Computed example of a mutant assay.
Amino acid sequence: MSDRVREVIAGVVHVLRAWLLGRVISMIAIEVVIGIGLTLLDISLALVLGVITGLLEFIPVVEPILSAVSAIVVAISQGFMPAVYVAIFYLVVQQLEGNVVTPIVQQKTVSLPPAITLVAVLAMGAVFGVLGSQRGARSE
């Protein structure tokens, strides 16, 4: 292998490690926020749901749906209004995570300028709708 190929591979490995670190940081942040938020909403199994949400954070596009549905199912056992509050809470958290937290974390870990992340989110949203904008935010 030539020195240039090794250099490129080393660069790619470095960027992928930084990206993975950014994903782990985002996963932990969302896990903590969801755990605390569901605890404040007095939802049973709040910490478990926080951990599930944090682990599912690695899966793009379907993660918000899977994690929210599991929390709403648990909350519905406590009544209709707690389930509504959980749904609103998840919607707000996922929007903040996809449009604020992830771009900032990725900028810090992968040195990706926020403007590029914002353009990617807007482009994916324009092409694929709401699910596209979530995917664009998560893929950066």
Rank of each mutant, 00 (worst) to 15 (best):
T53E: 08
T53A: 15
T53F: 05
G54P: 01
G54S: 08
G54F: 00
G54A: 08
L55W: 02
L55P: 03
L55E: 00
L55G: 13
L56W: 09
L56C: 12
E57Q: 00
E57W: 00
E57K: 00
E57M: 01
E57N: 00
E57H: 00
F58V: 13
F58G: 06
F58T: 09
F58C: 07
F58P: 04
I59P: 02
I59K: 08
I59R: 08
P60A: 09
P60L: 10
P60G: 06
P60F: 09
P60S: 09
V61W: 15
V61Q: 15
V61D: 13
V62T: 03
V62N: 01
V62M: 04
E63A: 12
E63K: 11
P64N: 06
P64F: 08
P64C: 05
P64M: 08
P64V: 08
P64L: 01
P64Y: 04
I65D: 09
I65M: 13
I65N: 07
L66T: 03
L66D: 04
L66M: 11
L66A: 14
S67I: 03
A68C: 15
A68Q: 14
A68E: 11
A68P: 05
V69Q: 05
V69S: 11
V69A: 14
V69F: 12
V69K: 03
V69C: 09
V69W: 07
S70A: 14
S70M: 13
S70K: 05
S70F: 14
A71E: 06
A71F: 01
A71S: 12
A71L: 01
I72Q: 08
I72E: 02
I72A: 14
I72Y: 08
I72C: 11
V73W: 12
V73D: 15
V73T: 15
V73H: 11
V73R: 06
V73A: 14
V73E: 15
V74Y: 02
V74C: 07
V74S: 05
V74M: 04
V74W: 00
V74K: 09
A75K: 06
A75L: 07
A75W: 02
I76M: 07
I76H: 08
I76G: 01
I76E: 09
I76R: 07
I76Q: 09
S77I: 02
Q78H: 05
G79A: 02
G79T: 02
G79V: 00
G79N: 04
F80Q: 11
F80C: 02
F80I: 08
F80T: 12
F80R: 10
M81H: 12
M81N: 12
M81F: 15
M81Y: 14
M81A: 15
P82L: 03
P82W: 04
P82R: 04
P82T: 03
P82N: 07
A83P: 02
A83R: 12
A83G: 14
V84A: 14
V84E: 00
V84S: 07
V84N: 05
V84T: 09
V84H: 03
Y85Q: 13
Y85W: 13
Y85C: 14
V86L: 08
V86R: 01
